[in-house]
Design a protein around this nucleic acid. Structure first.
Lengths: 154, 154
DNA sequence: GCGAATTAATCAGGGCACTGAGTATTTGGC
DNA sequence: GCCAAATACTCAGTGCCCTGATTAATTCGC
């Protein structure tokens, strides 16, 4: 009695969706490079020389997680990390040739995987789907940095 | 150049969505009990006496993860774990009174949180949103167990 | 019956995600 | 110039999530 139907809970479904994606990524894209790692490579292709914090901001990873991800990519020689001579607190990040090649190779596969992932939806549904997810996450993300400090609910 | 737009990648958006939910859960529902833990409590409210593996199946957690989650719930005395006298491999799980109370308390709050989470969408968009996520994850989940073997391979 | 699969759970190991506390460097107020 | 605040990063701790290997119990084939 009083049990809830979790299939009507967006949070539960979000977790299941991510698990499904994880699975598909592993089989269709790479077992070596994870999706968050690819996101970091991609950010550095778009803007080489970014610092760690900014990369984290671009791909949506907090300071601790981005540090781990970058350390793994660096260990695999996919990117270089040098102290900013202008600001000794920062590390500037730049892909190695190997990192660039890896990004190019995986880009093709991720595109294929996205096709399979979204295959159950019609073309109109796909854009709608992405739009809905974006709107919900952006709104929730907005609650994190409230323009005006909100009063907490007791 | 050749960088990809991650905001068109469902996997990336799925991760962001889950992070947004995690955040909201922490502020609006509980800092003690996580969303997967609540899912386990909920499964045991619906079907008391389930074994570990089946609970994992119900809420979508693999054998290792469900073991950890259950161990944490058990440590907090929210559920009891007893060996099945009928089958010595299994552990049968049942909520304690405290576990039942916790589930009831959190049910109310999760409902409130879901309202806030889905607030940016219209009422029709909400059901559509849940439906689209379900269809995509179910399809990807289906790829995991590829095609029912009509004749079992000896 | 009895040995061979099958099944439930555990363990080891890698990776993602967050918070809170600590260190080093730069910047801003005075 | 100097000290306090802000900033970039690191570290410790908790929890989720997966795979592959191992252990213990049951079931199936013969």
């Amino acid at each position: 009695m009083a049990a809830v139907d979790l299939t009507t809970h967006p949070g539960h479904l979000a977790r299941r969706l991510q698990q499904a994606h994880y699975l598909l990524w592993n089989t269709m894209v790479s077992e070596e490079i994870t999706s968050p790692q690819f996101a970091v490579l991609n950010a550095l292709v778009a803007e080489p020389g970014l610092d760690q914090r900014t990369v984290g901001e671009r791909v949506g990873l907090d300071r601790s997680t981005i540090a781990e991800v970058i350390s793994r990519l660096s260990r695999r020689d996919l990117l270089d990390k040098v102290r900013d001579p202008q600001d000794g607190r920062r590390f500037l990040l730049r892909l190695t040739d190997e990192g660039l090649r890896t990004h190019r190779r995986l880009s093709v596969r991720t595109a294929r995987m996205n096709q399979v992932f979204l295959a159950p939806l019609s073309v109109e549904e796909r854009t709608l789907f992405l739009d809905l997810i974006r709107r919900v996450s952006d709104a929730a993300e907005g609650l994190r940095h409230p323009a005006e400090p909100l009063a907490a609910q007791p």
